[in-house]
Protein backbone atom coordinates (compact mmCIF):
# COMPACT_ATOMS: atom_id res chain seq x y z
CA UNK A 1 0.00 0.00 0.00
CA UNK A 2 2.78 2.42 0.94
CA UNK A 3 4.46 1.53 -2.31
CA UNK A 4 1.52 2.99 -4.20
CA UNK A 5 1.77 6.24 -2.33
CA UNK A 6 5.48 6.35 -3.03
CA UNK A 7 4.95 5.60 -6.70
CA UNK A 8 2.34 8.27 -7.18
CA UNK A 9 4.50 10.80 -5.36
CA UNK A 10 7.38 9.93 -7.63
CA UNK A 11 5.14 10.23 -10.69
CA UNK A 12 4.20 13.77 -9.65
CA UNK A 13 7.90 14.52 -9.26
CA UNK A 14 8.58 13.14 -12.71
CA UNK A 15 5.89 15.35 -14.20
CA UNK A 16 7.43 18.40 -12.53
CA UNK A 17 10.93 17.53 -13.71
CA UNK A 18 9.60 16.96 -17.19
CA UNK A 19 7.90 20.32 -17.13
CA UNK A 20 11.21 21.94 -16.16
CA UNK A 21 12.96 20.18 -19.04
CA UNK A 22 10.25 21.33 -21.46
CA UNK A 23 10.58 24.91 -20.30
CA UNK A 24 14.38 24.92 -20.49
CA UNK A 25 14.19 23.49 -23.97
CA UNK A 26 11.76 26.20 -25.02
CA UNK A 27 14.02 28.92 -23.63
CA UNK A 28 17.07 27.47 -25.37
CA UNK A 29 15.11 27.20 -28.57
CA UNK A 30 14.28 30.91 -28.42
CA UNK A 31 17.81 31.85 -27.32
CA UNK A 32 19.56 29.89 -30.04
CA UNK A 33 20.81 31.88 -33.00
CA UNK A 34 18.73 31.67 -36.18
CA UNK A 35 15.09 32.02 -37.03
CA UNK A 36 12.68 29.85 -34.99
CA UNK A 37 10.24 29.62 -37.89
CA UNK A 38 12.78 28.14 -40.26
CA UNK A 39 13.73 25.60 -37.59
CA UNK A 40 10.24 24.29 -37.15
CA UNK A 41 8.84 24.71 -40.65
CA UNK A 42 10.15 22.70 -43.56
CA UNK A 43 11.38 25.09 -46.30
CA UNK A 44 9.97 22.72 -48.94
CA UNK A 45 6.37 23.23 -47.86
CA UNK A 46 3.97 25.23 -50.01
CA UNK A 47 3.38 28.76 -48.58
CA UNK A 48 -0.19 27.80 -47.63
CA UNK A 49 0.87 24.69 -45.75
CA UNK A 50 3.69 26.60 -44.09
CA UNK A 51 1.26 29.29 -42.95
CA UNK A 52 -1.07 26.65 -41.49
CA UNK A 53 1.78 25.04 -39.60
CA UNK A 54 3.00 28.40 -38.30
CA UNK A 55 -0.45 29.12 -36.97
CA UNK A 56 -0.75 25.69 -35.39
CA UNK A 57 2.59 26.09 -33.63
CA UNK A 58 1.78 29.69 -32.72
CA UNK A 59 5.01 30.94 -34.22
CA UNK A 60 3.35 34.20 -35.32
CA UNK A 61 2.40 35.04 -31.72
CA UNK A 62 4.41 36.86 -29.02
CA UNK A 63 6.95 34.71 -27.21
CA UNK A 64 5.02 34.06 -24.02
CA UNK A 65 1.90 33.03 -25.93
CA UNK A 66 4.11 30.79 -28.02
CA UNK A 67 5.10 29.08 -24.80
CA UNK A 68 1.47 28.15 -24.11
CA UNK A 69 1.05 26.96 -27.70
CA UNK A 70 4.19 24.89 -27.17
CA UNK A 71 2.82 23.31 -24.00
CA UNK A 72 -0.59 22.73 -25.54
CA UNK A 73 0.94 21.13 -28.62
CA UNK A 74 3.13 18.95 -26.44
CA UNK A 75 0.14 17.76 -24.41
CA UNK A 76 -1.92 17.05 -27.52
CA UNK A 77 0.98 15.37 -29.29
CA UNK A 78 1.61 17.98 -31.99
CA UNK A 79 5.35 18.03 -32.48
CA UNK A 80 5.31 19.28 -36.03
CA UNK A 81 6.43 17.56 -39.19
CA UNK A 82 9.76 15.94 -39.84
CA UNK A 83 11.65 17.65 -42.66
CA UNK A 84 13.24 14.47 -43.76
CA UNK A 85 10.35 12.04 -43.56
CA UNK A 86 7.59 14.57 -44.31
CA UNK A 87 5.41 12.86 -41.74
CA UNK A 88 4.18 13.96 -38.32
CA UNK A 89 7.00 13.52 -35.84
CA UNK A 90 4.75 11.72 -33.37
CA UNK A 91 4.20 8.89 -35.83
CA UNK A 92 7.92 8.46 -36.41
CA UNK A 93 8.96 8.36 -32.79
CA UNK A 94 5.94 6.16 -32.03
CA UNK A 95 7.32 3.66 -34.54
CA UNK A 96 10.81 3.86 -33.07
CA UNK A 97 9.99 3.60 -29.37
CA UNK A 98 9.28 -0.17 -29.23
CA UNK A 99 12.55 -0.92 -31.03
CA UNK A 100 14.53 1.12 -28.54
CA UNK A 101 12.75 -0.39 -25.57
CA UNK A 102 13.33 -3.90 -26.91
CA UNK A 103 17.09 -3.40 -27.28
CA UNK A 104 17.53 -1.26 -24.17
CA UNK A 105 15.61 -3.38 -21.65
CA UNK A 106 16.94 -6.67 -22.97
CA UNK A 107 20.53 -5.46 -22.77
CA UNK A 108 20.16 -4.04 -19.25
CA UNK A 109 18.40 -7.09 -17.84
CA UNK A 110 20.81 -9.47 -19.53
CA UNK A 111 23.93 -7.63 -18.42
CA UNK A 112 22.67 -7.20 -14.85
CA UNK A 113 21.77 -10.90 -14.53
CA UNK A 114 25.02 -12.13 -16.05
CA UNK A 115 27.01 -9.56 -14.06
CA UNK A 116 25.40 -10.74 -10.83
CA UNK A 117 25.97 -14.37 -11.70
CA UNK A 118 29.62 -13.97 -12.71
CA UNK A 119 30.34 -11.60 -9.82
CA UNK A 120 29.08 -14.27 -7.46
CA UNK A 121 31.40 -16.82 -9.02
CA UNK A 122 34.35 -14.42 -8.91
CA UNK A 123 33.82 -13.70 -5.23
CA UNK A 124 33.51 -17.36 -4.43
CA UNK A 125 36.85 -18.07 -6.10
CA UNK A 126 38.51 -14.98 -4.67
CA UNK A 127 42.22 -14.89 -5.40
CA UNK A 128 42.07 -17.84 -7.76
CA UNK A 129 42.56 -17.84 -11.52
CA UNK A 130 38.80 -17.70 -12.22
CA UNK A 131 38.52 -14.55 -10.15
CA UNK A 132 41.49 -12.85 -11.81
CA UNK A 133 40.25 -13.69 -15.31
CA UNK A 134 36.72 -12.47 -14.59
CA UNK A 135 37.86 -9.27 -12.88
CA UNK A 136 40.36 -8.35 -15.57
CA UNK A 137 37.86 -9.25 -18.29
CA UNK A 138 35.22 -7.07 -16.64
CA UNK A 139 37.61 -4.15 -16.28
CA UNK A 140 38.64 -4.36 -19.93
CA UNK A 141 35.19 -4.76 -21.49
CA UNK A 142 33.80 -2.10 -19.18
CA UNK A 143 36.27 0.52 -20.38
CA UNK A 144 36.32 -0.32 -24.10
CA UNK A 145 35.09 2.57 -26.25
CA UNK A 146 31.60 1.51 -27.23
CA UNK A 147 31.33 2.71 -30.86
CA UNK A 148 34.71 1.19 -31.58
CA UNK A 149 33.65 -2.13 -30.07
CA UNK A 150 30.53 -1.97 -32.25
CA UNK A 151 32.64 -1.39 -35.36
CA UNK A 152 34.94 -4.28 -34.42
CA UNK A 153 31.93 -6.55 -33.87
CA UNK A 154 30.59 -5.67 -37.30
CA UNK A 155 33.99 -6.12 -38.87
CA UNK A 156 34.65 -9.53 -37.33
CA UNK A 157 31.24 -11.19 -37.02
CA UNK A 158 29.32 -9.61 -39.85
CA UNK A 159 31.95 -8.75 -42.45
CA UNK A 160 34.70 -11.37 -42.00
CA UNK A 161 32.68 -14.30 -40.70
CA UNK A 162 29.33 -13.32 -42.15
CA UNK A 163 27.40 -14.81 -39.28
CA UNK A 164 25.13 -11.82 -38.75
CA UNK A 165 23.71 -9.02 -40.88
CA UNK A 166 25.89 -5.91 -40.95
CA UNK A 167 23.21 -3.41 -39.96
CA UNK A 168 19.48 -2.84 -39.60
CA UNK A 169 16.75 -4.60 -37.71
CA UNK A 170 14.86 -6.54 -40.39
CA UNK A 171 15.59 -8.07 -43.78
CA UNK A 172 13.18 -7.03 -46.48
CA UNK A 173 12.93 -10.42 -48.13
CA UNK A 174 11.46 -11.88 -44.94
CA UNK A 175 9.09 -9.03 -44.20
CA UNK A 176 7.83 -8.53 -47.73
CA UNK A 177 7.13 -12.24 -48.08
CA UNK A 178 3.35 -12.53 -47.59
CA UNK A 179 3.66 -16.15 -46.43
CA UNK A 180 6.09 -15.40 -43.62
CA UNK A 181 4.44 -15.89 -40.26
CA UNK A 182 5.30 -14.46 -36.89
CA UNK A 183 8.01 -17.02 -36.23
CA UNK A 184 10.37 -16.29 -39.15
CA UNK A 185 9.89 -12.58 -38.53
CA UNK A 186 10.87 -12.87 -34.87
CA UNK A 187 13.86 -15.01 -35.76
CA UNK A 188 14.87 -12.39 -38.28
CA UNK A 189 14.74 -9.61 -35.68
CA UNK A 190 16.66 -11.73 -33.20
CA UNK A 191 19.27 -12.42 -35.83
CA UNK A 192 19.72 -8.70 -36.36
CA UNK A 193 19.68 -8.06 -32.65
CA UNK A 194 22.57 -10.35 -31.70
CA UNK A 195 25.41 -7.96 -32.48
CA UNK A 196 23.99 -4.75 -30.98
CA UNK A 197 22.83 -6.68 -27.95
CA UNK A 198 26.22 -8.32 -27.47
CA UNK A 199 27.93 -4.95 -27.79
CA UNK A 200 25.73 -3.35 -25.14
CA UNK A 201 26.01 -6.41 -22.96
CA UNK A 202 29.81 -6.47 -23.10
CA UNK A 203 30.02 -2.79 -22.17
CA UNK A 204 27.63 -3.05 -19.24
CA UNK A 205 28.10 -6.38 -17.52
CA UNK A 206 31.62 -5.57 -16.31
CA UNK A 207 30.64 -2.87 -13.87
CA UNK A 208 27.83 -5.01 -12.47
CA UNK A 209 30.24 -7.91 -12.08
CA UNK A 210 32.73 -5.77 -10.17
CA UNK A 211 30.05 -4.33 -7.90
CA UNK A 212 28.55 -7.75 -7.24
CA UNK A 213 31.97 -9.19 -6.44
CA UNK A 214 32.82 -6.49 -3.90
CA UNK A 215 29.34 -6.54 -2.43
CA UNK A 216 29.38 -10.33 -2.14
CA UNK A 217 32.73 -10.31 -0.36
CA UNK A 218 31.36 -7.75 2.09
CA UNK A 219 28.14 -9.69 2.60
CA UNK A 220 30.02 -12.91 3.31
CA UNK A 221 31.48 -11.18 6.35
CA UNK A 222 28.03 -10.42 7.78
CA UNK A 223 26.76 -12.09 10.93
CA UNK A 224 23.83 -13.76 9.23
CA UNK A 225 26.23 -15.65 6.97
CA UNK A 226 27.89 -17.01 10.09
CA UNK A 227 24.44 -17.99 11.33
CA UNK A 228 23.79 -19.78 8.06
CA UNK A 229 27.08 -21.66 8.38
CA UNK A 230 26.35 -22.57 11.98
CA UNK A 231 22.97 -23.86 10.89
CA UNK A 232 24.85 -26.46 8.89
CA UNK A 233 23.57 -25.26 5.54
CA UNK A 234 25.49 -26.46 2.49
CA UNK A 235 27.86 -23.83 1.06
CA UNK A 236 25.82 -23.60 -2.11
CA UNK A 237 22.68 -22.65 -0.19
CA UNK A 238 24.64 -20.09 1.84
CA UNK A 239 25.99 -18.52 -1.33
CA UNK A 240 22.83 -18.54 -3.41
CA UNK A 241 20.11 -18.17 -0.84
CA UNK A 242 21.67 -16.10 1.93
CA UNK A 243 24.53 -14.05 0.48
CA UNK A 244 23.52 -13.38 -3.11
CA UNK A 245 20.09 -11.76 -2.55
CA UNK A 246 21.65 -9.26 -0.15
CA UNK A 247 24.72 -8.69 -2.27
CA UNK A 248 22.68 -8.06 -5.41
CA UNK A 249 20.94 -5.01 -3.92
CA UNK A 250 23.83 -2.59 -4.63
CA UNK A 251 23.84 -3.88 -8.21
CA UNK A 252 20.21 -2.83 -8.60
CA UNK A 253 21.11 0.61 -7.24
CA UNK A 254 23.94 0.89 -9.70
CA UNK A 255 21.68 -0.10 -12.59
CA UNK A 256 19.60 2.94 -11.68
CA UNK A 257 22.61 5.21 -11.34
CA UNK A 258 24.08 4.10 -14.64
CA UNK A 259 20.86 4.50 -16.64
CA UNK A 260 22.12 7.76 -18.17
CA UNK A 261 25.30 5.98 -19.21
CA UNK A 262 23.22 3.14 -20.69
CA UNK A 263 21.07 5.59 -22.69
CA UNK A 264 24.19 7.22 -24.16
CA UNK A 265 25.48 3.78 -25.07
CA UNK A 266 22.12 2.84 -26.54
CA UNK A 267 22.13 5.87 -28.84
CA UNK A 268 25.66 5.08 -30.02
CA UNK A 269 24.88 1.41 -30.60
CA UNK A 270 21.68 2.17 -32.49
CA UNK A 271 23.58 4.60 -34.69
CA UNK A 272 26.42 2.26 -35.58
CA UNK A 273 24.13 -0.69 -36.24
CA UNK A 274 21.45 1.55 -37.84
CA UNK A 275 18.96 0.04 -35.43
CA UNK A 276 15.76 2.02 -36.04
CA UNK A 277 15.38 3.40 -32.52
CA UNK A 278 14.96 6.81 -30.96
CA UNK A 279 18.65 7.27 -30.22
CA UNK A 280 19.56 6.78 -33.86
CA UNK A 281 16.71 9.08 -34.87
CA UNK A 282 18.10 11.79 -32.61
CA UNK A 283 21.60 11.52 -34.07
CA UNK A 284 20.20 11.37 -37.57
CA UNK A 285 17.90 14.36 -37.14
CA UNK A 286 20.61 16.47 -35.53
CA UNK A 287 23.01 15.83 -38.38
CA UNK A 288 20.27 16.55 -40.95
CA UNK A 289 19.01 19.73 -39.25
CA UNK A 290 15.59 18.17 -38.75
CA UNK A 291 14.78 20.12 -35.60
CA UNK A 292 11.18 18.97 -34.96
CA UNK A 293 12.28 15.36 -35.02
CA UNK A 294 15.31 16.07 -32.83
CA UNK A 295 13.19 17.85 -30.26
CA UNK A 296 10.62 15.07 -30.05
CA UNK A 297 13.28 12.34 -29.86
CA UNK A 298 15.06 14.20 -27.11
CA UNK A 299 11.90 14.65 -25.04
CA UNK A 300 11.01 11.00 -25.47
CA UNK A 301 14.47 9.90 -24.35
CA UNK A 302 14.17 12.15 -21.30
CA UNK A 303 10.82 10.53 -20.50
CA UNK A 304 12.31 7.05 -20.91
CA UNK A 305 15.15 7.93 -18.52
CA UNK A 306 12.82 9.29 -15.86
CA UNK A 307 10.40 6.40 -16.04
CA UNK A 308 13.08 3.71 -16.03
CA UNK A 309 14.60 5.34 -12.97
CA UNK A 310 11.28 4.96 -11.23
CA UNK A 311 11.03 1.34 -12.36
CA UNK A 312 14.45 0.58 -10.87
CA UNK A 313 13.52 2.25 -7.58
CA UNK A 314 10.31 0.25 -7.35
CA UNK A 315 12.21 -2.93 -8.14
CA UNK A 316 14.63 -2.12 -5.34
CA UNK A 317 11.82 -1.58 -2.87
CA UNK A 318 10.37 -4.89 -3.94
CA UNK A 319 13.66 -6.76 -3.47
CA UNK A 320 14.70 -5.22 -0.15
CA UNK A 321 12.05 -5.80 2.54
CA UNK A 322 13.67 -3.13 4.74
CA UNK A 323 12.67 -0.40 2.28
CA UNK A 324 9.09 0.66 2.74
CA UNK A 325 8.34 4.13 1.52
Amino acid sequence: MELWIYTSRRLVQIVIIFFVILTVLFLLFRLAPGDPVSRMVDPNLTPEDAQLLIEELGLDQPVWIQYFYYLKNFLTGHFGFSFHYGRPVVQIIGDRLPNTILLFTTSIILSALVGIFLGKIASWHKGEKTDTCLTVGALVTHTVFLPWLALIMIWVFAYKLGWFPITGMISEEVWLDPDAGLWPKSVDILHHMVLPLTTLFLIHFGSYLLIMRTSMLETLREDYILTARAKGLPEKVIRNHHAAPNAALPVVTSVGLSLAFSINGGALTETVFTWPGIGRELVFSVSHNDYPLAQASFLLIAAVVLVSNLVVDILYAYLDPRIRY
Binding site: D223, G232, L233, P234
Partner: peptide, 24 residues
Protein backbone atom coordinates in the same frame (compact mmCIF):
# COMPACT_ATOMS: atom_id res chain seq x y z
CA UNK B 1 30.80 -31.35 10.57
CA UNK B 2 27.94 -29.73 8.68
CA UNK B 3 25.69 -32.52 9.94
CA UNK B 4 26.76 -31.92 13.54
CA UNK B 5 26.07 -28.19 13.34
CA UNK B 6 22.67 -27.19 14.60
CA UNK B 7 21.52 -30.80 14.70
CA UNK B 8 23.58 -31.54 17.79
CA UNK B 9 25.25 -28.25 18.59
CA UNK B 10 23.57 -24.91 18.04
CA UNK B 11 24.59 -21.36 18.70
CA UNK B 12 23.06 -18.13 19.95
CA UNK B 13 25.13 -15.34 18.53
CA UNK B 14 26.93 -12.41 20.04
CA UNK B 15 25.68 -9.68 17.74
CA UNK B 16 22.06 -10.61 17.81
CA UNK B 17 21.10 -7.59 15.82
CA UNK B 18 22.53 -8.95 12.57
CA UNK B 19 22.29 -12.68 13.08
CA UNK B 20 19.07 -12.90 11.06
CA UNK B 21 19.15 -12.46 7.31
CA UNK B 22 17.36 -9.21 6.46
CA UNK B 23 15.81 -10.40 3.19
CA UNK B 24 14.14 -13.56 4.49
Amino acid sequence: MRQVRWQKMAMIFQTAMNALNPVH
